[in-house]
């Protein structure tokens, strides 16, 4: 390898474990900083919207969360595919570690969407194409989590979950377009989100900073969770025993 780094070294849990801790702490710190700055920009610096007043500020959480929810599903499917193709232990652990974070962001996106909908649309829930797709995405996450929880053998859990995640990722665009199509056919109560006014530069910056904050949070949370899964699954292995004995 020309770079001189053996990347495959880190695909084994024993060498990944200590590295993950350092990375998690680093990204966790970054996440706190970025989220604090992003929220400050969003809530204090961005101008008040002339149509929606102050309530629009929830998009500083809503939009990044919605992006993350979809992106994490893709990453999860990627790791799942890697696990099935190359049979590496770490891939399955990463997929399992990603799912709860993804489900959480999906839930936040739905929740903030509904909080935003009440003052804007006058109702908590609208069968808008995006909200509906997001809801279905939440169901897909729940399915993945439930399947993994129902299987005792971690190897089978990883591989069965991987198949489900891949089937899901193929279906996500189909679901999205069918829901969108359904939505245009049933145009009644729904108000399109895309009619948002042009964004001020500070709003855009605030949103981007928040996206980075959520990114770093996800990386930190997933690494921490992967560490727990790793230690639990490999508690009988040599490296885990050494680690536990050293009391670190």
């Amino acid at each position: 390898m020309s770079s001189g780094i053996n990347w495959f070294k880190f695909s084994s849990p024993a060498s990944f474990y200590p590295l993950a801790k350092k990375l998690a702490v680093g990204f966790g710190t970054l996440a706190v900083v970025f989220c604090a700055v992003g929220l400050y920009i969003g809530f204090f610096m961005a101008p008040t919207d002339h149509q929606q007043g102050e309530s629009y500020r929830i998009i500083f959480i809503h939009v990044p969360a919605a992006w993350m929810s979809m992106f994490i599903y893709l990453v999860m499917a990627f790791w799942a595919g890697m696990g099935l193709a190359f049979n590496t232990r770490l891939s399955g652990m990463m997929a399992s570690a990603l799912a709860p974070t993804g489900a959480m962001f999906t839930f936040i996106a739905l929740w903030t969407g509904s909080l935003w909908g009440k003052p804007t649309w006058g109702t908590w829930w609208v069968w808008d194409a995006r909200l509906t797709s997001e809801l279905i995405l939440l169901f897909l996450y729940f399915g993945f989590l439930a399947l993994q929880a129902a299987i005792d053998d971690p190897r089978r859990a990883d591989r069965a979950g991987a198949v489900l995640a891949l089937v899901g990722v193929v279906n996500v665009p189909i679901i999205y377009f069918s829901v969108k199509w359904w939505n245009t056919l049933h145009q009644g109560a729904s108000v399109s989100l895309s009619s948002a006014p042009t964004m001020a530069t500070t709003m855009l910056i605030g949103m981007l900073v928040m996206v980075f904050g959520f990114w770093f949070y996800s990386i930190a949370a997933v690494l921490m969770r992967a560490r727990c899964i790793m230690l639990e699954r490999e508690r009988n292995s040599e490296w885990a025993a050494q680690y536990l004995e050293s009391g670190a």
Partner: peptide, 13 residues
């Protein structure tokens, strides 16, 4: 739980 979300496109169409 696994299958119903995947059924949605068929239902809609």
């Amino acid at each position: 739980l696994l299958v119903l979300p995947l059924y949605i496109p068929v239902l809609i169409i």
